[in-house]
Amino acid sequence: MSTYSRELEVAELAVQRAAILTKKVFHEKAKGTVSKDDKSPVTIGDFGAQALIIQAIKKNFPGDEVVGEEEASTLRDNHKLRDEIWALVKGTKLTDADSEKLLGGPVESVDAMLNAIDAGNSAGGSKGRIWALDPIDGTKGFLRGGQYAVCLALMVDGEVKVGALGCPNLPVDDSAPLTADSGMDQTDAEGKGVLFSAVFGQGATSRPLTAGGLAQSKPIHMKPVNDITQATFCESVEAGHSSHGDQAAIAAKLQITKPSVRMDSQSKYGSIARGAGDIYLRLPVSATYQEKIWDHAAGDLIVREAGGQVTDTLGRRLDFSKGRTLAENKGVVAAPSAVHSIVLDVVKEVLSKK
């Protein structure tokens, strides 16, 4: 057994099972949306996916902590919403019995579901084994019918060791290039649904998402960028997440003329890791905003294991040891290793003039 092989298998299967649940909700017109204190939306899919994944982690690694995005206080007060989520959770399982057994089987009761959701309350930090979980990354994309991802990463003493991303609306075909409309009006129809994963020091892979056991995987690599003017940029759909104006200025200085591909979620990390795109920028829109670790941990590892570099806008590696946020970092610059320094220099130049 290779290092972290069991953690990887549990992570991949847990993400795959959670993706089955999110796909059910994706096809519903009413997704059970509520708002959190920061006004960001959360759906019944977020709660259900978090319950399924944390239950699988706790069954397999009971001493591990989880930094999860959601908590169950709303559901303890809103029984109608709670019952909707419970119906989803108890009805979601893998069709492969051995895989389902590995995850610990179904969630046993409503209380077990609520307790699993609330077990994502770790403060994070630099010691021990801590999982970072975003049950639906890109909830706004999920709601509008765009891209989203189910994201899970294991950190050991502050270093990301295992990462898994389930992207139900991305094409299975690793060679399919991103286009300007890749982030909108998407489906999980035939030929869609990919599971990216990586273990530190062991490379990155992709495989089709299934409803049962894990499909055959294949290694993925970032595409060599021989002419940076022909590179494809990825950025967030929401202007509140990344500065579109700064991105355009950076593209102009690099003489990149292709329109940027705007997509929600860590599907951007997976897309550049397999060479469907080339560069991902998330540029600060606020001097005080701190990125959440669950929004980057899995994607950061997958890109680096696929031959890329991921830093913040000052060239510092993303530091996942500071708690629930990337408190010591500003923004994200992800690119193939050979051109990362070129992109970073232009990012610094543009941002220094603000």
Rank of each mutant, 00 (worst) to 15 (best):
A11T: 12
E12T: 13
V15R: 03
A18V: 10
A19G: 02
L21G: 05
T22C: 11
E28K: 14
A30K: 14
V34Q: 09
S35E: 11
D38N: 15
K39C: 12
V42H: 02
I53R: 01
A56M: 05
A56W: 00
I57M: 00
K59S: 13
G63C: 09
E65K: 14
G68F: 03
E69F: 05
L75E: 06
D77R: 14
D83S: 06
D83P: 03
I85E: 00
L88K: 00
T95S: 13
A97I: 15
K101M: 11
L103M: 08
L103V: 09
L103D: 03
G105V: 07
G105Y: 08
S109Y: 08
N115F: 05
N115I: 11
G120Q: 05
N121R: 10
G124C: 04
K127F: 04
I130V: 15
W131P: 09
P135C: 08
C151E: 11
N169S: 14
L170E: 13
D174W: 04
G183P: 07
M184C: 12
Q186Y: 01
D188N: 10
G191K: 08
K192I: 09
V194C: 07
F196S: 02
A198L: 04
Q202M: 13
L214I: 03
A215R: 04
I220K: 02
H221Y: 00
F233H: 07
F233S: 00
C234M: 15
H241W: 12
H241L: 14
S243L: 08
G245V: 06
A249S: 14
L254Y: 06
Q255A: 13
S260F: 14
R262A: 15
S267K: 05
S267R: 03
S267D: 11
L283N: 11
T288M: 08
T288W: 00
Y289S: 10
E291S: 13
D312C: 04
R316G: 10
D319R: 01
R324I: 13
L326A: 02
K330Q: 14
V332L: 09
V346G: 02
K348V: 07
